[in-house]
């Protein structure tokens, strides 16, 4: 039993990354209708940001955790202003291609500078031990990742549910035209929301640096899975993407133990089932309903 719990807990830790990434994708998709393929690249840039700050300037993990998402969030806003915005009116495929192209550029730039070999990043001091969770010990850093992502998710939820800004974003995410008709300037909020989504990707990248291989391709490997998470949770559904993130993490971890070899495939099987059964995703809203 404690084994099962340990694996489930471990799944939640992996789910943290999916949840944060999916949350960012969901707000961006909801608000702009853009499938941001560069999300994985920003995850990678987040990890590299932490690595570069540590190596070039000796900046600690804790400061990187704040600075890197902010900086990349600003980059995201500029990106939206300068490029993404110009293509929004066209077929969604154009922005898909744009962000895919950006991904390749970011990956190759870092590969030119640092090569494909993973870069070293130490665990932050203070989180190197293990924590006794009653039934089992678990690495302190992993526990921190889970707690921190839950806090960020809850924080994002409070921001969206309890503040006026959040209300506008939610309204604009789910019914952009109607919101506009209410006399709210939706356009003003597009850049910050895009930046916010990117910052979340960067944040999970920084969190990943101490426990994953920091390499230019680390995001490309992950992003396909995160797309599956978003589809399962419901495209554009904020709560759905977070819940599906943790759910998929757990499914994968338990799959690894009980049906090894099918762990990743099981995610896509679930996606297929969900699409057949509830085409809008587990928590998504059918367009015709309401």
């Amino acid at each position: 039993m404690s084994d099962l719990l340990q694996h489930a807990f471990n799944g939640l830790v992996n789910g943290s990354f999916y949840a944060l990434l999916a949350l960012g994708l969901a707000v961006i998709f909801g608000m702009l209708g853009v499938v941001n393929f560069a999300h994985g690249a920003f995850f990678m840039l987040g990890a590299f940001g932490a690595f570069i700050l540590l190596n070039e300037a000796g900046v600690s993990f804790w400061i990187a955790l704040l600075v890197v998402p902010l900086a990349l969030g600003v980059v995201g806003m500029l990106l939206e202003r300068l490029l993404v915005r110009r293509l929004v009116a066209l077929d969604p495929l154009y922005n898909f291609l744009l962000t895919f192209g950006l991904t390749l550029i970011f990956q190759d730039l870092l590969r030119m500078k640092y090569g494909s070999q993973p870069q070293p990043y130490p665990q932050p001091a203070g989180l190197r031990g293990t924590v006794d969770l009653g039934l089992f010990d678990f690495p302190a850093y992993q526990v921190f990742v889970l707690v921190f992502s839950v806090l960020v998710s809850v924080g994002a939820w409070l921001l969206l549910a309890r503040t006026r800004v959040g209300m506008i974003i939610r309204a604009a995410t789910e019914r952009p035209e109607l919101t506009r008709a209410m006399g709210i300037d939706v356009g003003r909020w597009i850049s910050p929301v895009f930046g916010f989504g990117i910052a979340l990707a960067a944040l999970s990248g920084v969190l990943a640096a101490p426990m994953r291989a920091v390499s230019p391709l680390m995001g490309a490997d992950l992003i396909i899975l995160v797309f599956a998470v978003v589809v399962i949770g419901g495209l554009g559904s904020i709560f759905g993407s977070v819940a599906a993130g943790f759910l998929i993490g757990m499914l994968q971890a338990l799959g690894n133990v009980y049906v090894p070899g099918l762990a990743t495939t099981s995610v896509f099987i679930l996606m297929a089932v969900v699409l057949l059964w509830r085409p809008a995703g587990l928590f998504g809203r059918e367009e015709t309903a309401v």
């Binding site: 084994d3 340990q6 694996h7 471990n10 830790v13 992996n14 992993q142 990943a208 994953r212 291989a213 680390m218 490997d221 992950l222 396909i224 899975l225 994968q252 971890a253 690894n256 133990v257 990743t264």
Partner: peptide
């Protein structure tokens, strides 16, 4: 793809 080996390690 997930970069996670903890289930193998935990066992």
């Amino acid at each position: 793809t997930s970069g996670d080996f903890s289930s193998q390690l935990l066992q």
